[in-house]
Amino acid sequence: MSTVPADLKYTRSHEWVRTLADGTVAVGITDHAQHALGDLVFVEVPEAGRAVKAGEPCAVVESVKAASDVYAPLAGEVTAGNPKLKEKPETLNTDPYGEGWLMRLKPAPGALTGAALLSAADYQKVLEAEGG
């Protein structure tokens, strides 16, 4: 059974969002998602300064048997992509909610409150519905 930390927000497409003290958010993929993909061999993160819309593909995660786009959970500007993932994509497997974060976003005005993010409990229901 995959872990779903209670303090994070989620999307139906298996991204998580953590609000940071400085008002930016960290974004990653969930434990369920990394498990479904298998051993990651390549991660592509967006460059700082890129403006993204909610739902826009903005990162790619790749295993030997699958490749998947990661969608921006909310609109905003990328402030950083995780530089460690280029050398160590496996970090995403070992620590999806910590060192394996994908990008930091500065939410567009109102984007954080307006985004249709799920609570941990609701995301858990999504996983159960998917049979995970």
Binding site: D39, V41, F42, E62, S63, V64, P89, E90
Partner: peptide, 12 residues
């Protein structure tokens, strides 16, 4: 000639 190959290593 070989056993199962490490695809993950090949890609990483």
């Amino acid at each position: 000639p070989v056993r199962r190959l490490d695809d993950v290593r090949a890609a990483r």
